[in-house]
Amino acid sequence: MNAVLKSAANDTAWPLQARGIVHAYEGRYVLQGVDLTLAPGSVLGLIGRNGAGKSTLIRALLGLLQPQAGEAFVFGEPALRMSDASKVRIAYVPQQPDALAWLSAAQMFDYLSRFYPKWDRAYAQRMLDRWQIVPNKVMAKLSPGERQRVDLIRALASQPDLLVLDEPVAALDPVARRELLREIALRAGEQGATVLFSTHIVSDLERVASDIAFLHEGKLLLHCATDDTKECYARLWLPADQAVHVPADALSRRRHDDGSVSCVVARDAGARWPDAANRPGARIDALGLEDLFVEIAE
């Protein structure tokens, strides 16, 4: 009875949670106090420029590195001291995976299948065929794209409750990429899997992510539902004579050569744009996510 209660409590715990994570490499701060929570069944797209700290954040979230401050939790347990029961529920694919290069894909799947009770042998076989990967070729001889596909298959075949992918689509062609996105979307929607993936391809994010987190210079600049992002944020353009009225809480501001200013603003609680939007000559432009991120990250 106790065990049942305990596992029920674990199921309701957040799949991933970070509190105030700070980390530095050689004195340079990569993460400066990141708080992040993933709700069960959500698909969080982590976006940011190269070197923004996405991979470091992901590793800290999974307990693969010891942050200098802050704490990460996986299914309610401290990430650095995860139990085997939690580990079975996780799959993680690093950027450019190169583990077990001395095994063939078939051997790696055979090996890993013993650790995951829900391992889907038929799925793994089907995907190897579909992505035309020779199962008996030693993995050191696969191209980086094939190698990454093998790792994606292995992650999905273990049927995880929490799937964490670091730049999963970078080495995939458009067809394989679409297939992966479809798989991610359906796993989350139907099996209730929670997914975290980092990317810098924004269109992928807009398709499958239910939430978006934008990591910029070691901080999370925004974290909200994908649909809301497009409706809640917009670019406000102010002509030169109104430039002083830029709202103080604007996410970014850029001054143009003619003195005019553009900035990214958010709607307030009553879904209204800031007052500056009503000034003479002011203009509000709805933005696609890509434009929004370029605007903020620049």
């Binding site: 698909v43 979307a185 139907e190 398709r207 499958v208 239910s210 649909d227």
Partner: peptide, 18 residues
């Protein structure tokens, strides 16, 4: 169905439900 639309367009099923 929500699954068909989500699967065909590779989008999140929750978006379709919404």
């Amino acid at each position: 169905s929500v699954r068909d639309v989500a699967g065909f367009h590779a989008i999140n099923p929750m978006t379709v439900s919404r």
